[in-house]
């Protein structure tokens, strides 16, 4: 097939465009097939779960309530939501403050400090992991949500993302507000922050998703089963009741389907964020 000369006459050879659609449909289905298997397996009985047939004889909706009985799934999900929610709130707030300083305030050495700070994004998290763990032990924050939230409440990436966004807002806004006698804080809170909403939302999605998925830190931090976040809880489920494929898949479905819904609703903002985020080079 010849690549896209933007065809002037769309109806001239519709079958060729259709071939492309058919190919993409096939590829899409291949990408989604694991999810389809997951949902179908979650509706099987235990003996059926080791059966090669994809479909259950009759859908076992009862598997889902059964998951709640076997593991504290809701507890795990709530933990994840609370942790990811707090991290998101704090990180967006601290990043917005820092981004405001780096983009709208003039102070000597500002850009040099910014690039230095940006450079810390290179640091691999694993280097800080062991000492951070020791710090948590010393301060008695092991197995606590505070210890889970605090290290993630600050981010060079978030600062960078919002700075890029705020640099795009016209300078005249600040000047007009200053003329009206607004202080720096008012400019930040009443002018810049509302206008940066798309950027804030993008960062919020990224942060929330990243922390919802995050595994390493909660895995080493959390010792009590009731404190597990969802990823740690799923691993716990797998190691305790891994043979119960149907229940495991029901649990996995319940943790993946909300993500799919979130993504479908918010994909436009996410894609824009990815594009802003990668400009840094």
């Amino acid at each position: 097939m010849k690549p896209s000369a933007p065809s002037s006459d769309p109806t001239a050879r519709p079958a060729r465009g259709l071939g492309l659609h058919a190919l993409l449909t096939g590829l899409s289905l291949a990408m989604v097939a694991p999810f389809a298997w997951m949902v179908l397996a979650s509706l099987k009985t235990l003996p059926e779960a080791s059966d090669p047939a994809w479909l259950p004889q009759a859908a076992q909706w009862g598997n889902y309530p059964e998951v709640f009985r076997v593991i504290p799934f809701l507890r795990f999900a709530a933990n994840s939501l609370v942790v990811a929610g707090w991290v998101t709130l704090l990180q967006v707030f601290t990043s917005a403050l820092a981004a405001f300083s780096f983009s709208r305030l003039d102070w000597p050495g500002r850009d040099r400090v910014f690039f230095l700070y940006l450079g810390t994004m290179m640091l691999p998290g694993i280097v800080m992991l062991i000492p951070n763990y020791e710090i948590m032990v010393r301060f008695g924050l092991m197995d606590s949500f505070l210890g889970l939230v605090l290290p993630s409440a600050f981010s060079a990436f978030g600062t960078f993302l919002l700075r890029q966004f705020m640099l795009g807002l016209p300078r005249a806004l600040d000047e007009a507000a200053e003329m009206d006698g607004a202080g720096k804080w008012q400019i930040f809170w009443d002018v810049i922050l509302p206008l940066s909403r798309p950027g804030l939302v993008t960062l919020a999605i990224f942060t929330f998703m990243g922390n919802y998925h995050s595994f390493f830190w909660p895995f080493v931090m959390m010792k009590t089963v009731d404190n597990y976040t969802l990823p740690v809880g799923l691993l716990f489920f797998d190691s305790e009741h891994g043979q119960a494929t149907h229940l495991l898949m029901a649990a996995v479905t319940m943790s993946v389907v909300p993500l799919i819904l979130i993504f479908v609703v918010l994909q436009r903002q996410l894609i824009r964020g990815i594009q802003i985020g990668a400009v840094k080079g």
């Binding site: 590829l27 899409s28 990408m31 989604v32 694991p34 999810f35 298997w37 997951m38 998703m209 919802y212 998925h213 595994f215 969802l230 990823p231 740690v232 799923l234 691993l235 797998d238 495991l248 898949m249 996995v252 943790s255 993946v256 993500l259 799919i260 993504f263 479908v264 994909q267």
Partner: peptide, 17 residues
């Protein structure tokens, strides 16, 4: 959307799957 889904959901859940 469908191509992006596996990346978006990638984590312990999909590993278990």
């Amino acid at each position: 959307t469908l191509f992006y889904l596996p990346h978006f959901t990638a984590g312990v859940a999909t590993f278990v799957l």
